[in-house]
Amino acid sequence: MKAKFFGAVILCVFVCSADQMTTAAQETTKATSEPTTEPSTSNVTTVGPSNVTTEKTTVGPSNVTTEQTTAGPSNVTTEGPTTAPITVAPTTAPLPDASRYEVIENSKACLIMAGGFQLEVTYTTKDNKNVSTSMDVPKSSDVTVNGTCASGNDTESSLTITPKNGDIKSLKFNFKIMDGKASIESWMADVKISDAMEPEFNHTVNKTVDLASPKLYYKCEKRGNFSDNILALEYKDLKVQAFNVEDGKFSETGYDCPADAPDEPAPGKPPVKTYTATEGNKNCVVFKGSIQFHIPYVSTNGNTTALISVPQETNTTGDCNMTMNGLYTQKLSINFYETWTLNLYFSSDKKQNTDLLTADAGVANYDISQIELTYDYNNNLFSDVDDSGEFITE
């Protein structure tokens, strides 16, 4: 999540001296490309040689996803659902692929809802039995979408999906801003069910679902539903932004639903893991230890610091043949929390074009020459982050 930034990021790596790079690349042809340290759409922190304690921080706009916009207002102190919206157990039927439903105003989308949706209806049949049936919400090319968008100080908006064919006649969602949060205030479905006691079936779910700051979009990749005891709207890959849509796109940052929260280790207990970079069938870097970051940020209560650990679930890649500042270098990349990447660069004392790196003249000395962290202010890791959208660097 986009937030204010101040000071430097401190990376704390706990590793015993014996658990270091085990072998040097034995190739005589080395890659000539240097690693980039230019700001990306995330926060990128680059640290110099391992014996330097004052670190250099390069900060760019935060990027939780691939979409673009501004962050939310600074007076918002909490975001996201405060109560679980699910009252009906999700079905196990597969959901359709995600589609995008837009309310268009002045040739641009001003309200966007995306996802794969399935409607489950519980009804009474003509022979007085209670049954449930499911029907997929058609993709956007097979529906008509209309609605109303908020402008100025408006606090309400709506989106109506009208399928061109099928048993779903319409789905309507009413959105509202209240107490600094956007929410689904209510939603309704109008369907046709031939064996129902009342074939023309319509029902409104008057249950508020908190979403996020009005300037952020709400997303939930995992399966869930909005429901009461009659209607359930199953979803996957959900994204919705009902206010402040700019240039027809979702905002740059989004609020993750609780189901998508990363599995962050308990404070002070990061897992000890072995990370490797490989080339072919050989390991060129073996790094063992537990890793934590002290990341300063601006919360709704002022300047503070979060202690973030590298979790158990990670993916590692690397580069065994590259150069940096003219030195033979090997790179270990650790990917976690979907968008976070830690790059560790190990440089030898052998210079490219002046020293021949062979099996007989291996690397005698090497350093952790650079540490680079790319991250975002995920709302589940920084629950009280100030989302005013302003960055402060020192």
Rank of each mutant, 00 (worst) to 15 (best):
K2L: 12
F6S: 08
A8K: 12
S17R: 08
Q20M: 15
T29G: 01
K30C: 10
S33I: 02
P35V: 00
T45I: 12
G48Y: 10
S50P: 11
N51F: 11
V52W: 05
T57G: 14
S62R: 10
N63Y: 14
T66S: 14
Q68T: 14
T69R: 15
A71Y: 13
G72M: 14
N75W: 13
T77H: 14
G80H: 05
I86L: 10
T87P: 03
P90K: 02
A93G: 06
L95D: 06
A98R: 14
S99N: 04
A114W: 07
G115R: 04
G115S: 06
P138D: 03
S140T: 11
S151N: 11
N153S: 13
T155G: 03
E156A: 07
K172I: 09
F173P: 04
G180D: 01
E185G: 12
V191F: 11
S194C: 05
E198P: 14
V205G: 00
K207S: 04
T208K: 10
S213D: 02
C220Q: 12
D228M: 03
I230T: 11
I230W: 12
E234K: 04
V240E: 08
D247M: 12
E252W: 15
E252G: 15
T253G: 14
D263G: 02
D263P: 13
P265C: 04
P271Q: 00
V272E: 14
K273P: 05
A277W: 06
E279Y: 12
F287L: 05
P296A: 02
S299T: 00
T300R: 07
S309W: 01
P311D: 00
T316F: 08
M322P: 09
T323Y: 06
N325L: 09
Q352R: 12
N353T: 10
I368F: 02
D376M: 07
G389M: 07
